[in-house]
């Protein structure tokens, strides 16, 4: 397969009157790490959620590995649901709020997909689960419920859960935003290791240092469109758009400012 595992064309999405995505084209190559950045409300979370169709675009085309969707057409509900499930099995997702299953142990969380969706035999699923928990450094927590884990540990279990489906792509929606600052590093390290192993990833994050180290490409969004796309190096050292420069100044001075409203300096180019 040489086609990019994720290909979005002409993606539009509105919530009521609010247009969140206003025509986005983006494809992610195999083995590539794409970081989505941009101010709050720029549409980056919605975009990453379109990549496994947790959010269905109003129009545009989404291709996830071998599953292609034309959005905005109401046809064949059941076939569509099945196709969606297949697409989602090929993409893992890591959420800002972890969304671990609270009634299951760490291991139970990780093997739920392999058992229930991939139909692996118990022994095989457990072996896989232990291997993945080991990979995120939590094999000793296998029988612990999420309520007994720190935020950083929860997020690492959630990463193991996503990997357990052996996905083609892993999507991260602000994986450290709900964590205390001192817990960011343990999660980012795991993601960095995955990048080192050649995993295809799309990461929404405000962590500039991390983005610079891990990203092959940075996609900067504002107002529901892609404003700038560049290699990490180019993005941080010589951003071409004033809007990007303003954003970087804000996030560099203080991480707390990143959730401030979008800097509305250069309204010129959209």
């Amino acid at each position: 397969m040489t086609k990019p595992p994720i290909e979005l064309t002409g993606i539009r999405k509105a919530f009521g009157a609010l247009e969140v995505l206003r025509g986005v084209d983006l494809s992610v190559e195999r083995g590539e790490v794409v970081v989505l950045m941009g101010p709050s409300g720029s549409g980056k979370t919605t975009l990453v959620r379109c990549m496994n169709l947790l959010e269905e675009p109003d129009s545009g085309h989404v291709r996830i590995c071998d599953c292609a969707f034309s959005c905005g057409t109401r046809s064949d509900r059941r076939g569509r649901a099945r196709l969606m499930q297949r697409a989602r099995q090929q993409t893992g997702m890591v959420f800002q709020q972890f969304n671990l299953f609270p009634h299951m142990t760490a291991l139970g969380n990780v093997i739920e997909g392999p058992r229930q969706v991939r139909n692996l035999p118990m022994a095989e699923a457990v072996a896989l689960g232990e291997r993945l928990l080991d990979r995120v450094g939590l094999v000793d927590k296998r029988d612990v419920h999420p309520s007994r884990l720190s935020g950083g540990q929860k997020q690492r279990v959630a990463i193991a859960r996503a990997l357990a489906m052996e996905p083609e792509v892993v999507l991260f929606d602000e994986p450290t935003s709900a964590l205390d600052p001192e817990l960011h590093a343990e999660v980012l390290e795991v993601i960095q290791e995955l990048a080192g192993d050649g995993m295809t990833m799309v990461i929404v994050t405000h962590e500039t240092h991390f983005a610079r180290e891990v990203a092959d490409r940075i996609v900067f969004m504002d107002g529901g469109v892609v404003v700038e796309e560049a290699t990490a190096e180019a993005f941080f050292t010589r951003p071409s758009k004033e809007r990007v420069r303003t954003f970087l100044r804000l996030v560099d001075h203080s991480g707390a400012l990143v959730d401030a409203p979008a800097p509305r300096v250069g309204e010129e180019a959209v």
């Binding site: 997702m93 969304n99 299953f101 357990a164």
Partner: peptide, 27 residues
């Protein structure tokens, strides 16, 4: 039950009824 539970289950490709039975119902 938190909406994120539905999302987490569908993000691993779990069908609706199985999600209900395995994830939502116990909670």
């Amino acid at each position: 039950v938190d909406k994120g539970q539905w999302e987490a289950a569908s993000s691993i490709g779990m069908p609706y009824w199985r999600t209900f039975r395995r994830i939502i119902f116990p909670q």
